[in-house]
């Protein structure tokens, strides 16, 4: 049980900036976390915090310039194309935007078959697999011959999930997969994520800016701020009684959908900001 699926240690990601001898932009400044089989690790933070970059680094889509990413003990941060191809049935991805993550000119069947062809699955077996996948994500069988534009956002996201599941991976990096969806669609897609996890034992690295989504899905939660993880631990602990001042601010900022409780919450937030301000001042004096 305690074996680690993914082990991220002190990872640094730097993007070179245009201009002669300019310091590169550090998107990640030494980030560490680990994921166990069948576990959901929530990665929460605001725009520019580096949470998406961490997901992309795991997928080999971001330049890792320091630290290590180990998948089942094997170093993958500098994996070659061929090694990546081997990894494609271990690590998969579901992106945020269901409108640009599916090629508009390919049918759903072509989209789902694509990862299978890389693994040289026979045509007939591939067709069977497509039918199975559509079933898993609750899409009707006649969806196979349609184009992505004929589907709603929630349905497209189901297709993207089916594509990720095609090779039966052990880890799926989910980059804000429900952020673009309507509230009730979002709830249903999240239920699907949980159901698939309970059935197949896949692990998720679940990136989101939405605290409620992360709390609902995650066993453990990491909070990112300015390219660093500022808090990391069990979901109930991090989302229930956060310790880091930034996490506290973050959680107090999210409004509660109840007028009276939100009024109290708002007052609490102002008190917290005031308190943190005082502490900062004292720290500055001392």
């Amino acid at each position: 049980m305690n074996d680690t699926l993914l082990d991220v240690r002190d990872v640094v990601v730097e993007y070179p900036l245009k201009g002669f001898r300019k310091e590169p932009f550090k998107a990640l400044k030494g980030v560490s976390l680990d994921i166990r089989p069948g576990e959901t690790v929530g990665l929460v933070g605001e725009s520019g915090s580096g949470k998406t970059t961490l997901g992309r680094a795991v997928l080999g889509l971001a330049p890792v310039t320091g630290g290590s990413i180990k998948y089942r003990g094997q170093e993958i941060s500098q994996a070659t194309r061929a090694q990546r191809r081997e990894l494609s049935h271990e690590i998969q991805v579901v992106f945020q935007d269901p409108y640009t993550s599916l090629n508009p000119s390919m049918t759903i069947e072509q989209i789902l078959v694509e990862p299978l062809t890389v693994r040289k699955v026979e045509r007939q077996a591939a067709n069977r697999r497509v039918a199975e996948l559509l079933d898993q994500v609750r899409l009707p069988q006649d969806a196979a011959q349609r184009l992505p534009r004929e589907f709603s956002g929630g349905q497209r996201q189901r297709v993207a999930i089916a594509r990720a599941l095609a090779l039966d991976p052990k880890l799926i990096v989910c980059d804000e997969p429900v952020s673009a969806l309507d509230l009730s669609t979002q709830a249903r897609v999240m239920d699907l994520f949980i159901e698939i996890q309970e059935r197949t034992g896949v692990a998720y690295l679940f990136v989101s800016h939405d605290l409620a989504v992360v709390r609902h899905l995650s066993h453990r939660v990491a909070v990112m701020y300015h390219g660093e993880i500022v808090e990391w631990g069990d979901g109930d602990q991090v989302t229930g009684s956060p310790e880091h001042p930034y996490t506290q601010r973050l959680f107090m900022a999210a409004p509660i959908p109840d007028p009276d409780r939100q009024a109290r919450h708002r007052a609490d937030r102002l008190r917290l900001l005031d308190l943190q301000h005082q502490q900062d001042l004292q720290a500055g004096v001392a």
Partner: peptide, 22 residues
């Protein structure tokens, strides 16, 4: 239905339990 879809008040998922699937 919209109000039911709100996640704010749902309980956190809790720590990973030992599952035979793993």
């Amino acid at each position: 239905q919209l109000l039911d879809a709100i996640l704010e008040d749902t309980a956190p998922r809790g720590a990973l339990k030992n599952s035979p699937l793993n």
